[in-house]
Simulated assay, not measured.
Amino acid sequence: MSNVSKSVFDPKAFLAIAGAGRSTSNWNKGQVIFSQGDPADALFFIQEGKVKVTTLSTQGKEAVVAILGASDFFGEGCLAGQKLRISTLTAITDCTLSRVEKATVIRLLHDNPDFSALFMTYLLARNIRIEADLIDQLFNSSEKRLARLLLLLANFGQEGSPQPILASITQETLADMIGTTRSRVSFFLNKFRRLGFIEYNGHFTIHSSLLNVVLHDDPRAALSSQADNPDQSPE
C-alpha cells in the first residue's frame, strides 16, 4: 500500500490556470465587475482583494448586501437558472479575479470531484451565513449587529489570523449592511473604541474582546434594547 498522501486541493492554483472557459484578470479599486441586469453567464472566484455586492430597488434605493474577500465565489446564480445579474459587484480594493464560464463550471462539477466538493462546501457555508444574517437582523440590536459584522469582516472564526478592516469600508456601508443609520454606527464605533474593543488607525483593528458584545445575552432579549431606539441621544 502506498504511503503517499493525497495532496490538498488548492482552488486558487486550480482556478488561476487559464484554459477554455477560464481566465484570470486584475481589477482596479472602484471598477464595476458586473452590473445589476447584466447577463448572468459566469462564476467568479476572488484570488486577491475585496468586492462589494450591492442591489438597487425599483425605487432607486441601494443596499449593500455583502463584502466578499479572497477565496470567495460570486455570480453563482447563473448555475440556478438566473438569466440576469440581480446585484452589482464593485472592487473595493485592487483585485485579482478568476472567471469561469457557466458551461465550464457545470463540466467541472461533473468531472472534478475535488472542485465539486469545495464548491458545495462553500455554498452550504454561504447558506448558513445567510440564515445567521437573517436571525441577526430579526432578533439583535443594531449594536450587536454591528459588532458581529465587524468580527466577520475581520475574519474572526475563520482560518488564518484576524485581518484589519479597510478604511474603504465606510460608516455608510456598515450602516447599510446592518439596517441602521450612519449616526448610530458612529455612536457604537466610538463606544467600542472607548471600551478598547477596536482601534482606528487608517483602518479598523478588531480585538477578540468585541465578542463580548455579541455573546452578552440571548439575542432575542435585545428586542427591548434601547440601543435600537432611533430617538436615543448619543452619550
Rank of each mutant, 00 (worst) to 15 (best):
S2M: 02
N3F: 12
V4Q: 10
S5C: 05
K6V: 15
F14S: 10
F14C: 09
F14W: 15
G19R: 12
A20M: 11
G21D: 07
R22S: 13
T24D: 00
N26F: 13
W27P: 02
N28D: 10
K29N: 14
G30R: 08
F34S: 10
G37Q: 12
A40Q: 09
D41Y: 01
F45S: 11
F45H: 14
F45C: 12
Q47E: 06
Q47Y: 01
Q47G: 11
V51W: 01
V51D: 00
K52V: 11
V53D: 01
T54D: 05
Q59H: 08
G60M: 03
I67N: 04
I67G: 06
I67F: 06
G69R: 09
G69I: 08
D72T: 03
D72R: 02
F73L: 00
L84S: 10
I86Y: 04
I86M: 04
S87D: 13
A91G: 06
A91E: 06
D94P: 08
L97V: 13
L97C: 03
H110T: 13
P113L: 15
D114R: 10
A117Q: 10
Y122C: 07
L123G: 02
A125S: 11
N127C: 11
L134I: 13
I135E: 08
D136Y: 00
S142N: 14
E143H: 05
E143C: 11
K144C: 14
R148W: 04
L151I: 03
L151Q: 05
G157H: 06
G160Y: 08
S161W: 03
P162Q: 03
P164H: 10
I165H: 05
I165N: 06
I169P: 04
T173G: 01
M177F: 06
I178T: 09
I178R: 07
T181A: 12
S186E: 04
F188H: 15
F188S: 09
N190R: 14
F192G: 07
G196E: 01
F197E: 12
I198F: 02
Y200P: 01
Y200D: 08
G202H: 08
H207W: 00
P219A: 02
R220Y: 02
A221Q: 15
S225V: 02
A227C: 11
D228K: 05
N229P: 04
D231K: 09
Q232S: 13
P234W: 03
P234E: 04
E235K: 10
